[in-house]
Design a protein around this nucleic acid. Structure first.
Lengths: 107, 107
DNA sequence: CGTGTAAGGAATTCTGACACG
DNA sequence: CGTGTAAGGAATTCTGACACG
């Protein structure tokens, strides 16, 4: 089992600090959420909470925007990446199944 | 050179989230600051900002408080620890100086 | 399309103080 | 000593909209 509760992915930072950390305006940050490029959590009151991973993602986004890439394209790219990773995951899962069938794990 | 800009020590979390993360009331968290057990930074507007390290420190403090330890004692303990670490640091520094004098680094 | 801004309101945080024990 | 709480105010954030291009 991996750690999974790393600080890096914990959504705890509010938008003001995120703005400072990334150099982006709050408007930009909210807009990128609207375009489904980032996914903050919310407090009960409705305030957005981000992680350090989100900071990194936002910096990446900012760089691409500078290069004239549109939010739609950035989103498509992310979807492609995700699919690739999912496929890889399944491949590994199947391989493990094969190995177990041959050598391992009898009930 | 070490990293030094690890996420763990970055002061970015506001007191509401810290309260949730530690289970302590905001009152308690502010009081422990008053007693010099934690040292949040501030935004320009004056809002406190904490790090994940602070979360860990607060949990430690909470445990000691449960055991009936007073804030003053906790503070003294921290001071002792710090002194010990500083002494160790100087010792290493001097050792390095000795080695350089014998083998290394001529101008 | 991507971003700035003014608007009005709600959630969040701040300080100093009183209370209890 | 350590913590809860009500009080009043200030900083922060939220949404929906208009503007520009």
């Amino acid at each position: 089992m991996k750690d999974k509760t790393s600080y890096k992915d914990k959504k705890v930072i509010s938008i003001g600090v995120i703005s400072e950390l990334t150099g982006l305006s709050e408007r930009q940050i909210r807009y990128y959420e609207e375009r489904k490029l980032i996914f903050p959590e919310r407090t009960n009151g409705g305030t957005r909470k981000y992680s350090f991973s989100d900071v990194e993602a936002l910096v990446d986004i900012a760089n691409k925007m500078e290069d004239g890439v549109q939010t739609y394209e950035i989103r498509q790219e992310k979807i492609r990446e995700k699919k690739k990773i999912d496929k890889e995951k399944i491949r590994k899962q199947m391989l493990k199944g094969q190995i177990n069938a041959q050598f391992g794990v009898q009930k």
